[in-house]
Computed example of a mutant assay.
Amino acid sequence: MLTFIARRIGAGAVLLLVISLLAYLLLSIPDTDVGRQILGPGAPQADVDARNSALGLDQSVLTQYGQWLTHAVRGDFGTSWFSSEDVSLAVGNRLPVTLSLMVGVTLVTALVSFLLGVWAGVRRGVVDRIVQVLGVAGYALPGFLVTLVLVLVFAVRLGWFPAIGYTPFTESPTGWLSTVTLPIASLSVASVAGVSQQVRGAVIDVLRQDYVRTLRARGLSSRRIVLKHVLRNASAPGLSVLGMQFVGLLGGAVLVEQIFGLPGLGSMTVTYTTRGDIPVIMALVMITVIGVVLVNLAVDVLLGWLNPKARIA
Rank of each mutant, 00 (worst) to 15 (best):
V195Y: 07
I312L: 14
L297E: 06
G143S: 11
G201D: 09
L150H: 07
L249V: 12
G175P: 11
M268W: 11
V122D: 08
G291A: 04
V127D: 09
G42R: 13
L187I: 12
D86A: 14
V146R: 09
V192S: 03
V180D: 02
V230C: 08
R123S: 14
R74D: 08
Q258N: 14
G252D: 10
V146E: 10
M244T: 09
A110T: 12
A120E: 04
T167I: 15
V226R: 11
P162W: 11
V151K: 02
F82H: 01
K228W: 02
G238S: 08
V212N: 04
V230D: 11
M286S: 10
L89H: 12
Y211S: 12
G266Q: 04
V34K: 07
L99Q: 06
L297R: 03
V136K: 04
L207A: 08
W176Q: 03
D58Y: 10
G219D: 08
V131C: 09
P41E: 11
H229S: 11
I281A: 00
L95C: 03
L297A: 07
T273L: 14
V122H: 13
V153K: 11
T98S: 15
L16T: 03
T269G: 09
G264D: 02
A202V: 10
T32H: 01
R7F: 14
V61A: 11
V18H: 04
L239P: 06
G143I: 12
L177V: 14
L16W: 12
T174G: 15
R157N: 12
V131W: 02
Q64P: 04
W68I: 07
L2S: 12
G219N: 04
G165K: 01
A120H: 09
S88K: 06
G165I: 05
P279C: 06
V61D: 06
R94F: 07
G238F: 03
R8N: 05
S83T: 15
V212F: 11
T181D: 00
G238L: 08
G66C: 01
Y272Q: 14
V241T: 13
P279Y: 05
I281T: 04
V14S: 08
G42T: 06
D58R: 06
A298F: 10
I19E: 00
G159H: 08
R129S: 13
L27R: 00
Y166R: 05
W305V: 14
R208W: 03
R213P: 00
V256S: 05
G266E: 05
L148Q: 12
I184H: 07
S60T: 15
D205V: 05
N307R: 08
